[in-house]
Nucleic acid binder design. Structure first.
Length: 832
RNA sequence: GCCCGGGUGGCGAAAUUGGCAGACGCACGGGACUUAAAAUCCCGAGGCCGGCGACGGCCGUGCGGGUUCGAUUCCCGCCCCGGGCACCA
């Protein structure tokens, strides 16, 4: 009879359909819960290899956990709002909703074809009103708490698009759609989330996230950027009569606040420097000077920025009084001072800060030294700032103190005078959530002439996106251009009013979607509190490193905010985080423009889903980047064919190995190898997830099956052979579910491997009775020795010394030293 | 500049506690099967040197040192590649 060939296209589709139809199993309260989550994809059109890797990892884990008896939650959804839909609308004159939903349908079908074991009954699509309604609801709750607010701020503006751009839509200082159009900065009123209120907790709780990669924790610490220092108030003194600032004096503040981490250097201040867009300048400078100040601020993204940029500024004519010395210092404005950090004003201490040094030297400001090295004979650098800790000099009553101690005393001093205080500043800024875009969640507010800003009442949610919108070459009109949407009545006074036309950043959608999976059809609340108590936190989150900062901080922020609102109880959403590596091809990130894309659909057509999934797991450890190898998939295809043919050459029954089974020689070999492989794989799932080595181990096992196959039914009795073959199928199932299910069925067994319990390695079979010991002479392997497994070190030494190879090497000499390690080796040291 | 990864055969990689470096796979070479090819099955293979050969010797995990009987693994100092951040006061 001709052997059945491995033709996955003949059975994968059938199983995929069966699995897609399967009802999700009812929650089993008696089992321990495990929530496995993969980052939800943007429905760009089709799955790409990055998705396949992400989901192959997650699915292997979810499948194995189910076999181990956990009640596994493994959902999937779609991050369906966002700009590409509008881009596509322009290109195809197709409504973003249609385009998005069609993509979702296709990608869902692809995910099913891959056999990813999602609970499709929980699917969430963020662009549907059933979902974004709860974005709006949460937005209103945040507003009530003061966590959502409006503020004027500087934003990226494209004059061609006539809209605000998100930072990531600006590359090299130009608009992503108009490469010849420089992006401008504009001051606009925008909606913000007060994430900074949680900055301290977000930072502190990073320490609790022991199941996260250290790399991601470090990135988040940096991003939040906590600095301990002090705020110090400097009284302002106007310029003399007739000088350039005089006209504006009446509108200037009486004082300026400075943030510094080095209050110990304050006796060395030679100027105060304001950010060019500091609001105080408006009252301090006449119009021409104000324009000059604004011109100092480089447009966003316009090179050069950062440390390479030349420091430029000018004297405002004003002075400020140093509260410690009582002496005035000139007030300047300069391009290197950031408005978004601290107070937007710095005290320039050129002797002890590199930036201030560069700046003051350029403009001829004095450079007084107030910190000297702790070591008496050490010299501070003559032509650079001395930024280390040291001993204070020329600092009045504080002279002679160590800078660490001085900071405490000087902070206390300024606090007692009520001209400053200890404070903590964060690099993290409030999250600007306004987008002037159509394809997003409408922000649920109304502007009324009489009542002002009015939140849309909860019972009127959702504020729906209007469906009939004009689509032209310029794109989809934003909401401001749709009168039917804008014109409404005030919820308070019922008079005509205008709707807010900004939509929300799509990061809002992805900040809480994993709660929605818990009760996707709940219509009383974003999610059911009881379900959240059962399932949260997510036990294992899996996704790309590119979300290490934004998404993962926003999601942590939402969890803390929702906790404070009483919606959930956890402090952190993700217990463990796994960041998978990138797949490159020919050394570069896959992209259409480079023409180096591998399409998962082609791979399925040629090799099937199992081989594709298995290759992606086999090519490298999952956290590491790897370069795609076209022939690699073929190797896994061949391997699965080997398994398939091997399995179907033998029949099967449901009986296990008898408890009193006494293995003969080859049976022992096979049982040992099988159980050793099982032990390795079981351990890998609970530790590093190096599935590449799991598959390698299974390949080794299959090679042993092939070697021993001639003995099947003779030297290896049927019950031993079948036992091992069955275990092989269970071990392979999380990585290649289709072929294992197919074989299982062909054997006539009940269910599929996925419905079986994960087997336990039996130590009776894993134990070796005889082991090989390495014999070294001066650390180099010179012989091998087979000994009974239990042999102790003395026994090994005795047996090693009489070996011919050792005798020859000794040539009559006595070894200087012999190291014998039971179970490992004997090393004989001979000194010449 | 700072932070984080990484560097092992022609290639992807393995070696989980300091104990045989290169498992497993790709590519390659040889053989079996075949009229032939594909598919399949089996065998070989880090480099250099010596030997007809079985085999033997030396070198070898980015580089230089150190600890140790023994180092891919631990310590010190460097080099290279990739990623992130970067005037954050």
């Amino acid at each position: 009879m001709p052997e059945r060939e491995y033709q996955p296209e003949q059975f994968e589709q059938r199983w995929a359909e069966r699995w897609a139809r399967a009802e999700a199993s009812a929650p089993e309260e008696t089992k321990k819960k495990y929530y496995v989550l993969e980052m939800l994809p943007y429905p760009s059109g089709a799955l790409h290899m990055g998705h396949v890797r992400n989901y192959a990892i997650g699915d292997a884990v979810a499948r194995q956990l189910r076999m181990r008896g956990f009640d596994v939650l493994h959902p999937m959804g779609w991050d369906a709002f966002g700009l590409p839909a509008e881009n596509a609308a322009i290109k195809n004159r197709r409504h973003p909703r249609e385009w998005t939903l069609a993509n979702i349908a296709h990608m869902r079908e692809q995910a099913r074809r891959f056999g990813f074991s999602y609970d499709w009954g929980r699917e969430v699509t963020t662009c549907l009103p059933e979902y974004y309604r709860w974005n709006q609801w949460l937005f209103l709750k945040f507003y009530e708490r003061g966590w959502a607010y409006r503020k004027r701020g500087w934003v990226n503006w494209c004059p061609q698009c006539a809209t605000v751009l998100a930072n990531e839509q600006v590359a090299g200082g130009v608009c992503w759609r108009h490469e010849d159009t420089p992006v401008e900065s504009r001051e606009l009123e925008q909606w913000y989330f007060r994430i900074t209120e949680f900055a301290g907790e977000l930072l502190r709780d990073i320490e609790k996230l022991s199941g996260w990669p250290e790399r991601v924790r470090a990135m988040q610490r940096n991003w939040i950027g906590e600095s301990h220092g002090a705020e110090v108030e400097f009284q302002l003194r106007p310029p003399g009569q007739g000088s350039k600032g005089a006209a504006a004096v009446h509108a200037a503040p009486a004082s300026l606040k400075v943030f510094t981490t080095r209050i110990d250097t304050i006796f060395g201040v030679s100027a105060l420097v304001l950010a060019p867009r500091h609001p105080a300048l408006t009252g301090m400078l006449a119009a021409p000077e104000l324009a000059r100040a604004h011109a100092l601020q480089p447009e966003r993204g316009a090179a050069p920025l950062g440390v390479e940029a030349e420091k430029e500024g000018f004297f405002t004519g004003w002075h400020a009084v140093n509260p410690f010395t009582g002496k005035p210092v000139p007030v300047w404005t300069a391009n290197f001072v950031l408005m978004g950090y601290g107070t937007g004003v710095v005290m320039a201490v050129p002797a002890h800060d590199e930036r201030d040094f560069d700046f003051c030297r350029k403009y001829g400001l004095p450079i007084p030294v107030v910190i000297r090295p702790r070591e008496k004979d050490a010299e501070a650098p003559a032509d650079a700032a001395f930024t280390d800790e040291g001993v204070l000099a020329d600092s009045g009553e504080f002279s002679g103190l160590d800078s660490v101690e001085a900071r405490k005393r000087m902070t206390a001093w300024i606090e007692s005078r009520q001209q400053g205080r200890a404070t903590i500043t964060y690099r993290l800024q409030d999250w600007g959530v306004s987008r002037q875009r159509y394809w997003g969640t409408p922000i649920p507010f109304v502007y009324c002439q009489g009542c002002g800003l009015v939140p849309v009442p909860e019972d009127q949610l959702p504020v729906r996106l209007p469906e009939n919108v004009p689509i032209s070459e310029q794109g989809v009109a934003n909401l401001a251009g749709i009168p039917e949407f804008v014109e409404t009545t005030c919820p308070k006074c019922q008079k005509p009013a205008r709707r807010e036309t900004d939509t929300m950043d799509t990061f809002v959608d992805s900040s809480w979607y994993f709660y929605r999976y818990l009760s996707p059809h709940c219509d009383r609340a974003p999610f059911d509190a009881a379900e959240a108590r059962r399932w949260m936190p997510v036990d294992q989150y899996i996704g790309g490193i590119e979300h290490a900062i934004l998404h993962l901080i926003y999601a942590r922020f939402f969890t803390k905010a929702m906790r404070d609102l009483g919606l959930c109880e956890v402090h952190e959403p993700f217990q463990r985080l796994f960041t998978q590596g990138m797949i490159t091809r020919h050394g570069a990130k896959m992209s259409k423009s480079k023409g180096n894309v591998v399409d998962p659909a082609d791979l399925i057509a040629r090799y099937g889903a199992d081989a594709t999934r298995a290759y992606v797991l086999f090519a490298a450890p999952p956290e590491r980047d790897f370069d795609w190898n076209d022939q690699g998939v073929e190797g896994l295809y061949r391997f699965l064919g080997r398994v398939y043919r091997l399995a179907l050459r033998h029949d099967m029954d449901a009986a296990g190995l008898p408890a009193d089974f006494e293995p003969q020689k080859s049976e022992g070999t096979l049982l040992r190898k099988t159980h050793q492989t099982l032990a390795r794989i079981s351990q890998e799932f609970e530790s590093r997830w190096h599935f590449n080595t799991c598959l390698a181990a299974i390949m080794e096992l299959v090679n042993v099956f092939y070697e021993l196959e001639p003995e099947a039914g003779r030297g290896i009795r049927g019950e031993a052979w079948r036992e091992c073959l069955r275990l092989l199928m269970l071990m392979l199932a999380p990585f290649a579910p289709f072929v294992c299910a197919e074989i299982w069925q062909a054997w006539g067994l009940e269910g599929t491997p996925a419905t079986q319990a994960w087997p336990r390695p039996n130590s009776t079979w894993t134990a070796e009775d005889e082991i090989e010991i390495v014999i070294q002479i001066n650390g180099k392997v010179r012989a091998h020795l087979r000994v009974p497994a239990g042999s102790d070190a003395a026994e090994l030494e005795r047996r090693a010394l009489v070996l011919p190879a050792v005798q020859t090497a000794l040539a009559g000499r006595t070894p200087a030293k012999v190291i014998a390690v039971a179970g490992r080796l004997v090393n004989i040291v001979i000194r010449p």
